[in-house]
Design a protein around this nucleic acid. Sequence first.
DNA 1: TTGTCTTCTGGCCGCACGGCCAGAATCTAG
DNA 2: CTAGATTCTGGCCGTGCGGCCAGAAGACAA
Lengths: 215, 215
Amino acid sequence: MRPEDKPDGQKRSFVEEARRAQIIESAIGTLAELGYTGTSLARVAERVGISKGVISYHFAGKAELMEQIVERVYRDIAQFVLSRLEKEATATGALRETIRSVAEYMRDHRTQLLALGEVVTNLRTTPDGALRYGIAFNEPIYDAREALFRRGQQAGEFRPFDARVMSVTVQAALDDMFAYWVTHPGHDLEAHAEELADLFEHATRSEDPGATANR
Amino acid sequence: MRPEDKPDGQKRSFVEEARRAQIIESAIGTLAELGYTGTSLARVAERVGISKGVISYHFAGKAELMEQIVERVYRDIAQFVLSRLEKEATATGALRETIRSVAEYMRDHRTQLLALGEVVTNLRTTPDGALRYGIAFNEPIYDAREALFRRGQQAGEFRPFDARVMSVTVQAALDDMFAYWVTHPGHDLEAHAEELADLFEHATRSEDPGATANR
DNA sequence: TTGTCTTCTGGCCGCACGGCCAGAATCTAG
DNA sequence: CTAGATTCTGGCCGTGCGGCCAGAAGACAA
């Protein structure tokens, strides 16, 4: 019996889990180098040094492999950033720390994030051609950040603005900071992040400097 | 002799140009609906109601067809936005008008911009797997907007900030405004654009309100 | 050592793709 | 009307893909 046919989830052997991780990492590397179109099961297998059939043995198909990549990378970055935010009391500080921590994660996980981008913008599972993830994929991020902005507005730290638009824009700024850094290897990622933090501090802060308490 | 073998460019017959345009439009529609992977020459031909070979007759290959799409859409939007900017005297006004005009273009050219995005993020012509366009594609936009920001800074309208980061971020905000609108059909694009204009006005304006003249 | 369960190999299958071409159809100039 | 140029058809070709499987190889408990 092939293990990927199991109902869902529990009790995978250690060896099996190791193989799955190995294949996932190979797929991540291939995605980052050759893009989604260039990532065939044959190439992923070759990079590990195994036969192509092993992937079919451990994963239900190419789609499941891709989804595992998204799940793993997404969970990882979310955990990293959220753990950093716990220490921040003010909304202003949390916003700046969001940008800093994301930049730091990008610096140390370039390959994973490139792969994530490839899958999110290309994987289609339904026959109608709709993207499996797409932008809607960011919705949980938008929601969380929106809540942060509202808190800052109620505390008087932030001026009144559309929290949803601000959330979307922050995410866009972070995504393109990454994309720009990837294509400009000499670019100073840290400085870019600080510049972004300043940018959004100016964009969000209350017009009246004295109104720090709740009005 | 096949017309696509001509040295480059001039004297294409009217009929031929019409066919090329027809095929390009079909490709744009297909890209917008089914994405890059789903856009085969067969499907593009089917949508026009012609044989697949006609595309090979009028274009050197799939890559040339895709490049023609980019060239056409890119030139169109650039012309639209630049014509709007001519009327603006101040850097602040030009920034706001940039955002407004791009949003208006998006509203009226949804399909074209979807297709442009598909090609830019997927077309690879070199065997090493590098993207044909990628983010570097935005470089002329960055340069022009950077010049605008510097002018505003010298005029005292804008605070000191990194003009390159601000340029990249404005473009990111516009791109994601489009992406968000595409996935949320009920979203108010115009309101989003105004919100963005406010956002960047706060982000860029000089700290000292009195310093409107050159210092 | 033997038997069973897990894991892997190597290769085959059908499919969709982009490219290509021989010849048919259509248009146009003389 | 005729001859040549332009445009199109329909189908064939090689390639690479994801999926699949029969049987070999390895791990391990009895």
